[in-house]
Nucleic acid binder design. Structure first.
Lengths: 250, 250
DNA sequence: CGGGGCAAGTTCTCTGGAGACGCTAACTCC
DNA sequence: GGAGTTAGCGTCTCCAGAGAACTTGCCCCG
């Protein structure tokens, strides 16, 4: 009946993970730095390889580190993208949000990498929401400091926007919502939906994430005041990033 | 120079995980069902225990399964909480969203478990946003089918709402935003921010989640049209759940 | 019939070892 | 000096085994 002196002490791998995490969050290890590898942890703590891997897996799973086969495990810390103060975008400025973000994120480069626009047959989900068999799809990829962090796919009912500037890569001043206003679909009301932690779809390749990496999906539907759906926007982002989603004035 | 016949075939543990996942998503295995355990996978596929564990870890990491020590690994599938059709809430109805959700989620019980209201000194973050040293905090826990899925903490500047119905557990018809309107802070404009996949804070205990379980945080600030911040709302939810976040008419 | 204790079953933690695969940098050769 | 090659390093996958911790159901006893 020897009382175990260390009751419910955290397991070894967790103590190591806690130690590494505190080094990351305290700033001792910075974004991009290389963590001690499996071999280093093995010799430092006198543990087996599997235990060292388990410790690193905790941080990788939390999104604080990224393993690179053949190279090492690296710190991956997103600083929050956050607008300071109380400046907000009017709905009309929504389409220009990028420019304002650029000037307001303290020098961090938040940019659009790629734009694709095409006309497609609706998928079942999109067709049900937009009540249309064909849609124009506008895909964009956003990057922060050169790292892709977000994909956006905007779907418009094809018959509603056919032949308008929405079907062009550059929508002009005021962006998409100004063009929708030109078509008489203004003001626009939004609904929002957050789907967290989807099993990773193929799209994650575009974010340069490994298959199976958890992602976050935010869907937004825009309606006219008459209740006609005019846009279905799906934003797919790395679930480990902190992202300022939007910020507008109604 | 023997050409490997199976180039880049997925590893064993991933093939097993894919098989189990498809059984879950196809409905063959349902929420609460028990998955084949480590021993079952070992004998079925002729693999080592570590490999079987790795396969199950994939599903656990994706949030599709939950291990219960001494018992087994169980399917944990949240059906989407989704309002059908195009019915939306007006801003005035926002405070009554719960009642409307209740009647509109096809019999799923989306309920408020607990409510706590107290007056506190502001934390640094809250104080900066609300520009107030003291705040009234209103905490609520939401459950779906008896499982806690979401925490909400609404912060109000103490000097603005002192003595009003907002400081009571039941805010009455129209909810918090009707009370803010009574105080002359109407209409209200929102900003939204999504912070994904935080390292789990202590709060996760209230969601009955293990420490380190990924959670999702959505923050919303409400401003008057004059730019005065009147509410900071932080929603903490299980990152594995699919949650309809909100749905309102501007 | 209720309660306590036991045993089987299951996950959790950890050890030790091995080959495969990918990245990087040093080296060699032109 | 530049280009191609190679060796070392580090992660990835998988094996075999063992004790600890926990849950559950069953049996026995009162």
């Amino acid at each position: 009946m020897t009382e175990s002196p260390a009751q419910h002490e955290p397991p070894i791998y967790r103590r190591i993970a806690d130690s590494l995490r505190s080094q990351i969050l305290s700033g001792e290890l910075r974004d991009g730095d290389r963590l001690p590898g499996e071999n280093a942890l093995m010799s430092e703590y006198g543990i087996a390889r599997a235990t060292a891997r388990q410790a690193l897996a905790v941080l990788i799973n939390e999104g604080l580190a990224v393993p690179r086969r053949g190279s090492g495990v690296y710190v991956r810390l997103f600083r929050p993208i956050r607008r300071h103060g109380s400046r907000r975008l009017s709905r009309e400025q929504w389409g220009q949000g990028r420019a304002i973000w650029d000037s307001d994120t303290r020098g961090r480069a938040y940019t659009v990498d790629e734009v694709h626009i095409e006309r497609l047959a609706s998928t079942e989900d999109v067709g049900r929401v937009l009540d249309s068999d064909e849609v124009w799809v506008r895909r964009r990829r956003y990057s922060v400091d050169g790292r892709p962090v977000q994909l956006a796919a905007s779907h418009f009912p094809a018959d509603l926007v056919e032949g308008t500037a929405i079907t062009l890569p550059d929508t002009g001043p005021g962006g998409v919502y100004a063009r929708l206003g030109d078509l008489g679909y203004s003001p626009v009301h939004f609904t929002e939906e957050v789907r967290a932690r989807m099993p990773a779809p193929n799209e994650s390749e575009l974010l340069r994430l490994p298959a199976g990496n958890p992602i976050l999906i935010v869907a937004r539907t825009a309606y006219t005041s008459g209740g006609i759906p005019v846009e279905l926007n799906e934003m797919t982002m790395d679930a480990a990033a902190y992202v300022l989603q939007y910020d507008f004035d109604a």
